[in-house]
Amino acid sequence: MLLDLDFVARQPLSVFGVGAGIFFLKGLVVFGVALVLNVSFRTAVIASVSLAQIGEFSFVLATVGKASGLVDENLYQHFLSASVFTMLVSPLLIAFAPTFVERTQRLKFFQLFGTDKEGAGAKPLTDHVMIVGFGVNGQNVARVLRETGIPYIIIEADGETAVRLRKEGFPIVFGDATRKDILHLCEVGRARLIVFAISDPQGTRTAVRLSRSMNPNIHIIVRTKLVSEVEELEKLGANEVIPEEFETSIEIFTRVLDHYHIPRNVVNAQIKVIRDENYGMLRGRMLTERGLDRVAQLLAAGTADTFLVTDDSLATGKTLEELDLARHTGTTLIAVVRGDKPTITPPGDFRIESSDSLVLVGTHANMDRAFAYLSQLPARESETSPATTKERIEHGG
C-alpha cells in the first residue's frame, strides 16, 4: 500500500478534486447530523471539519478491495492520494475553523443555524447576570442567583440541555456566546455581569472580546483551566480570571492552615496577595517587592476575631478583671455576645459564661496569644497564681 507520487504528479487536479469532494461530502454529512442533534453552529462546523478526513480503516478496506480485484490500480491510487490529501489539510482546516466560524456567523444566513429565540425576550432584562455554559460551575451560579432573586439568563450551546432546562423553568437561550446576535438577544448591553464557565479557550477569548466591545461597563468573570490564559484574557477585557488548577491549590492550603488554627485573616492575606500577583507564587515565580511589602503590611495590621467560650475553657466562670486579657495577651476585649445580646465594653466585674463569644481586637501575634491563653484548661488551685499563668503563656505553654 504505497502512494505513487508519479500518479499524483500526472493527475494533480483529479486528485485534488477527489480529495476536496470527499472532504466536502463528509463534512456536510457531519454538519447536518450535528444540527439535527441540536448543537451550536460553532460546534457543528468544528466537528464537521475534524471528522471530514479519511479514516485509517478506509485504507484497510481499499487494500482488501484491491486484493480481491474489486478496485483497480487507477481507482486505488485516486483513493490513496485523496486520503493522504485530506490528512495533510485537515490540521490546517481545524486550526482555521474557529476563525471561519467567527467571520461567517455574522452573516444572517448562518445565524439561522444552531440557535433559537426562545428563553429570552419574555420580559426585559436589566442589571442582570449572564451565565455562559451550564456545567457544574454554571449550575452553582444559577442556583445561588435564583435563591437570592437576582435576575439572570443562561447561554448554552447544547440544544438538548437548553430544551430540558427551559422546561424546568430556567431562563436559557440555546446558542453560541461568540455570536453578536446571541449576546444582543440576552441584553448584554444592559447586563451588570457576565460569567464564562465553558471549556473552549478560543471561544472564551472571542466572547470576552465581543462582550467588552458591546458593553464597556460590564463586569466579566472567566473560569479557565489554564493559568497561562490569565494575562491574555485580562487584556481582552476580563475583570477577573479564575484558573481552576490554582484555585484548587488555594483551597487545599487554606484547609491545611485552618487545620493548624492559623487566623483566618492571615490566610486571607496570603490568598489576596497570590491573586493580586496573578498566581505568580504558585507558578514558581518569586513574589515582587510590592507583593512582599503587601504581605508585611497585611500581617502587621491589627485584626478582630471572636473566641467561643466552652465549658472547659479557662475563661468560664471568671470575671474580665480576673482574666486580665490586656496584661496576659495584649488584646482588647470590646464586646461579649451572649445568645443574641451583645454587651459592648463590659465592666471588669462582668462574669464570663460558657457559650459566650468574646470579641477581641489586637495584632495577629497578640490574637494568637489570646487564643492560646483562653484555650487552656482551668488550672488546679495550686497553679492558679497570676505569675504561674503568665509564665506558661510567655513560654508557649
Rank of each mutant, 00 (worst) to 15 (best):
N137W: 08
G149K: 05
G133L: 02
T148V: 00
G149C: 07
K123L: 04
V136E: 13
G121T: 08
R143S: 06
F134S: 09
Q139V: 07
N140E: 11
A142P: 03
V132P: 07
N137S: 14
Q139P: 01
G121M: 01
F113R: 07
H128A: 01
E118R: 15
R143I: 03
P124Y: 07
H128M: 01
K123D: 04
E118T: 15
N140I: 04
V129C: 09
K123P: 01
T126E: 13
F109I: 14
A120F: 06
F113C: 04
V129L: 05
D127V: 00
F113Q: 04
T115H: 08
T126V: 07
V136N: 13
G119Q: 01
G135S: 07
F134N: 08
M130F: 00
K108L: 14
V132F: 06
G133E: 00
G119N: 02
G119T: 08
A120R: 05
V136H: 13
K123S: 09
Q139I: 05
K123W: 00
G138H: 09
G121P: 01
L125P: 02
G114L: 07
G133R: 02
V129M: 04
L125K: 01
L112K: 15
F113E: 03
N140T: 08
M130Q: 09
M130Y: 01
K108G: 12
T115G: 08
Q111R: 15
T115M: 08
D127I: 02
Q139C: 06
V136K: 15
G138M: 03
L125Y: 00
A142G: 10
K108C: 02
T126Q: 13
G114C: 10
N137L: 15
E147Y: 00
I131T: 06
K123R: 12
I131G: 08
A122Q: 10
V141C: 06
F113T: 08
Q139H: 13
G114H: 06
L145Q: 06
Q111L: 01
K108Q: 14
R146C: 02
L125S: 03
T148S: 13
D127F: 00
A122R: 12
G138R: 10
I131N: 05
F113L: 14
V141K: 09
V141W: 01
G149D: 04
N137Q: 13
N140G: 15
F113Y: 11
G138V: 03
K108F: 09
M130C: 09
F134H: 12
L125T: 02
R146D: 01
G133H: 04
M130G: 14
T148K: 15
G119Y: 01
G119I: 00
G133N: 06
F134Y: 14
Q111E: 08
R143M: 01
E118A: 14
G119E: 02
T115A: 12
P124A: 15
A122I: 08
G119K: 03
Q111H: 00
